[in-house]
Amino acid sequence: MTLTYPDAAGPSVLPAAEPSEARRVATLRAFLHRRLATTALVVFLLIVLAALFAPLLGLPAPNVQELAARLQGPSWKHLLGTDELGRDQLARILAATRISLWAACQATLVGVVLGVPLGLAMGLVGGRLDSIISRAFDTLQSIPPLILAIAIVAIVGRSLTPAMIAIGIVFSPTFYRISRAAAATVAGETYIEASRSMGQRTHKIVLTHVLGNVSSALIVQVSITLAFGILAEAALSYLGLGVQPPSASLGSMLTSAANLLNAAPQLVIEPGVVIIVLALCISLVGDALRDVTSGEQVG
């Protein structure tokens, strides 16, 4: 019999491959599969939404004093009771949460802006400039964040924003290191060389290839920094260095309520619980995001 051979270079049979959208759906599904992380995300979003839209909830204004109704326990009028000046505790907690979250975001933003672009560039370029800048960031990291924040507050006066910027500065080396390491790994990949061989400029390579491939490492660091930012703000405000009365942050609420621990323990417990829950939720979500996205980087 005669032998026939199919065309050697003919189209090949494609095994079932997953399209990019299906992959995104799969990533999302993998995340939602983690009950704990999903719960954490929902709780976190609820707190954030409540904090953002507090004025629309029909609560009393957070700074309006109602001296007749001081230190009340929970009631229908005041769901979480009132503080020593008769202000609605729920309204104050929501306002304080907004300030705390904003402060944490400031710190994170400063860290990202200072650390990430430089880290990506140095990871890709390398050389002597890289080692000089890396040493500089190492030095910066040796400063304890809270001490620097206290020092800055001592210079510019009691205000939350400079303190949080200080914390952000001290956090920037971590962002620098993470993005530099990730960029250096990606820089060795052939697709970067390929892009360069097509005439692509370096800054565009960073934007198109490098940033996408370091994003999952960054997401995790952002979540860690946010959580730490909330705790740092609480610590600073507890020391009286952060936000000034009558505005409240979660930390300053703790301070003022600490004196009344025996008379009205709920005033300490309530903001304390919010701090813990926020920090915990952010960490859980960050961890889950890392687990879900790191699997896809390998391929």
Binding site: L3, T4, P6, A8, V13, P15, A16
Partner: peptide, 28 residues
């Protein structure tokens, strides 16, 4: 002598054909 490739790709685990596993790529 011309080098001839084998068209297609081997099946993945879990997707082995029912009968002869090489049949989808086999000229015979």
């Amino acid at each position: 002598q011309e080098m001839l490739g084998i068209p297609g790709a081997p099946p993945r685990a879990g997707q082995f054909p029912e009968g002869c596993r090489f049949a989808p790529r086999c000229g015979h």
